Simulated assay, not measured.
Amino acid sequence: MNRVIDSHIHLDLYEQKEIEEIMAGLNSAECTDLISVSFHLDSCLRNLQLAETYDQVHPAFGFHPEQELPSDEELQDLFSWMEKYQKQMVAVGEVGLPYYLRTEKGTGFSIDEHIDLLEQFIVKAKQWDKPVILHAVYDDAPIACDLLEKHGVEKAHFHWFKGDSKTVGRMIENGWFISVTPDLIYEKEIQELVKKYPLGQMMVETDGPWRFEGPFTGKMTQPIMIHDTITAITSIKNCGREEAYRTLYDNTAKFYRLNMF
C-alpha cells in the first residue's frame, strides 16, 4: 500500500460539501492523516471541531503571517486558547513572516512586529514541546532561521519553501524539514529544491484549498494529488517508489508524533 499523509492543508477553508468529499475519498486516496493548519483563532476553533469529528484530522494552531497583525487583545485570546487546547494540537502553525504582504504593500512596510510575533510563537512552541510550521520564503527565510537557532528549535517544518541555496544548506544542517506541493510537477524552482534536499527531511502536502496549474488546472485540490508529487520525487531523486513512499510517510508520522493521537 502506498500510504500518504497530507502534511499541510487548510481543511477549515473548504466548503462543507468539499470537506465531506475529501474525507470520504481518503481511503481511495490511501491518505491516512491530514495536518490541518490554522489562520487565526476562528480557524483554530474550526480545525479543532474538524479534528473532533474526523480521526484522520490533526490540527495545528497559530496565526498566518500574510494578514494584518492581531491586536494585543486578539493575540492574548489566541495564546490563552492555545494554552488550553495544547494537548489537542500537533504543532504551532501556520506562523511565519509576511513576504507576499510586504511585496504587495511596497516600501515603508515594516516587518519588525511580525518578527516579534513569530518569536513569541516559537517561544510558545518550545514551552509546549510542539513542532513549528513555518511560512517563511525568500528573504524572510534567513530571519526565521535566526529565530529558530536562537531558541534551539529542532523540529521546524518549512512548508512550500522557496529560498537561496545558502539558506537551504542551513536548513538541512539544522535537521529541519520541508514539504512539497503538487506544483513540483511543473515548477523548476521546486524541482531544484527537491534535488538538493535529503529525502529523509522531506514531507508532502497539498496546501489546499490553494489550486494548482498544469495537469491540476480547474481541479479541487485534494490529497490524492500527492501521489503525482511522489512520482515526481522518485524521478528527481532517482530512488525506488517504495522507498519514497515509506520514507515520506515515516518522516511525517514521526515528526508529528501521529502514533500518539
Rank of each mutant, 00 (worst) to 15 (best):
Y249N: 10
E68C: 12
E20P: 11
G25N: 15
E21L: 14
G169M: 10
L248E: 04
N47P: 04
P198G: 02
S110Y: 14
N174Y: 02
H135Q: 08
F121D: 00
R3D: 08
L34N: 04
M203N: 09
Q127R: 13
M203D: 03
R257I: 01
G218R: 12
H151K: 08
S71E: 08
E154M: 11
D42Y: 13
Q88E: 11
A125M: 03
R257P: 01
D164V: 11
G208P: 03
H159P: 01
F158C: 04
A144L: 01
P65N: 05
D55K: 15
P215H: 05
P209L: 11
K196R: 14
T181N: 05
W210A: 07
M89H: 02
D6S: 04
F216N: 14
G200H: 15
L75M: 12
V90S: 01
G208C: 07
Q49Y: 12
G208R: 05
E189C: 08
E205Y: 07
Q16M: 02
Q86P: 06
E119F: 11
F39H: 11
M203T: 09
S110E: 15
G175C: 06
K155P: 01
E154H: 12
I172A: 03
A144I: 01
Q67C: 05
M220I: 10
E154F: 02
A232Q: 14
H151C: 03
G169V: 06
P182S: 10
E213G: 14
G163I: 08
I230T: 09
R241G: 05
V123L: 07
M1L: 14
R102G: 09
L97T: 11
S179D: 03
E15Q: 14
G93V: 00
D42G: 14
L184N: 07
L101T: 13
E173M: 11
L147D: 00
I224G: 13
D72E: 13
F261A: 04
N259C: 09
E52T: 10
W176T: 03
S179M: 04
G106P: 01
K150P: 00
C239L: 15
K126S: 04
E20K: 15
E94V: 07
A141K: 10
A136W: 00
F261R: 07
L48A: 02
L26S: 13
D12W: 03
L148R: 04
D55R: 15
K105Q: 13
C44S: 06
H135R: 11
Q88Y: 09
W176G: 00
C239D: 10
K105H: 12
R211F: 06
F39G: 08
N2A: 13
S80P: 07
V153Q: 03
D6N: 07
N47M: 08
Q86T: 12
D42Q: 15
V37I: 01
T206S: 05
S38R: 03
R46I: 06
Q88G: 09
D129A: 08
L101N: 14
I172G: 01
Y186P: 01
A244K: 09
V92R: 00
R46N: 05
L258A: 04
D77F: 12
N238I: 09
G106S: 03
L193S: 13
I230S: 08
N251P: 06
E74N: 14
E189Y: 06
A232K: 15
E213V: 12
Y100R: 15
Q201S: 12
I230W: 09
M23Q: 06
N47V: 05
E21F: 13
D116S: 14
V95Q: 00
A144C: 02
Q88W: 04
G214P: 04
L148Q: 02
Y99K: 11
F158T: 05
E154A: 11
